[in-house]
Structure formats: structure tokens, C-alpha cells
Amino acid sequence: MTQINKNKDAITWETFSEGLWVNNPVFVMLLGMCPVLAVTNSAINALAMGLATMFVLLASTILVSLLSDFIPKQVRIATYIIIIATFVTIIDYVIQAISLDLYNALGAFIQLIVANCMILGRAEAFSSKNKPLKSIVNALGMGIGFTFALLCLGVVREVLGAGAIFGIDLFGENFQPWVVMILPPGGFLVLGGWLLLFDWIKQRQAKDEEQEGRANVA
């Protein structure tokens, strides 16, 4: 963590942790919103979607960073998209083979991972400019950050909207589910709520730091 190295290719803690918090793809960069909102109506769907996206992100990162020297600049976006589409096709068939229930619950959104701008954004902004190993570490962080964000939404929506978590009943029979939370509007509202919370925390931190700074000067 305290590794001080001016070398551009050095893999530091920041390479990994960037995606977890500072530049969390969902909460900070607002990328890949469609699956974030569409499949997070239960925690298990959210987890599966997060892992599938992470697989595609990792695999395409490896290929993009290895091939980046050979891909002509003009057709790079098209090439990246085709690489991503290949891995999505693989994961699509894999999920179908593992669990048909899950496949039906996620529906077309597995195939729509292709259009997740987070993955293309990473390929364009990071993997094409960095060494494979560094890109993989970064992609791993991003993938975990993405899965974490999906879980944040999935858990809240399932608890409020169905009174359960990972399918396990929490409140007993008397619970009146807040159905709107598992319907489309709930997705917008819950994510909005999370963002409000994070913005509020950030403002508090900034204010505290400012006061500390003033106290030090005085």
C-alpha cells in the first residue's frame, strides 16, 4: 500500500481501489445504469448480474490490453465491442446451462451486457493504454465495485418490496410489502436515495475538513 514508485506501469493499491469507491462505476460515474436499475429487484438477481458483468469485464480487459498494439485506431471501438459481444455470448450460454430460472429472471439483460457502457468505457480509457496485469487489477476493482453497487440496490429493494432477503422471509406474515419498490419506479428512487446519502456524506466530510483547516490556521 505504501509502495512509492514513479513507474507508470506500477500496480498500486489505487489501481485496484479506484473502482471500489473513488470512481465507483455506478455511484460516481453513473455508467452501466440499465442493468443496475432493471435487474436489482431481488438480491440474488443483482448478485448474478454483477458476477456476469465482472466476468465479461475481466475477459474483455485481458484481450483488449493484449491486443491494443495491433488494433488500428480508427476501428478500435468496433473491435472492442465485438470482443465484448463474444464474451457476452459465452456467459449467456453458461448461465442458461447452470440455471434456467435465473436465465429467465434476468431475461434479455444478460445479452444487453454488451451495451453496458462501463465495460466499453474501461476498454477505451484504461485497458488500451496500460499493461495487461495492471488492467486486470483495475478491472477486478471495477467489477467488485459494480457488484457491490448492484447488491446495495438489490438488498434494499428486496427488503422493502418483498420483505425478504435472498428469498428468506424477514418479517413474517404481517408485513405489508411496499410493492412499488420492486416495480420500475423503485429502482430510480432507491438509487436516487443512495446517491443522496453519498452526496450528503461527502459534503459533511468537506465541511469537517474545512473547519479543521481553519482551526489549524488559527
Binding site: 419506479p185 430510480f188 428512487l189 438509487l191 436516487g192 436515495g193 443522496l196 452526496d199 459534503q203
Partner: peptide
């Protein structure tokens, strides 16, 4: 001031 930015857009989208 907290509600400026993306959070506000999402709330609007929800409504």
C-alpha cells in the same frame, strides 16, 4: 445543495 446533480435526476425519473 445535496440534491443537485444525479440524485435529483434519478428522483425525477422515479416520479
Amino acid at each position: 445543495s445535496v440534491t443537485q446533480g444525479a440524485a435529483l435526476s434519478l428522483m425525477l425519473g422515479g416520479i
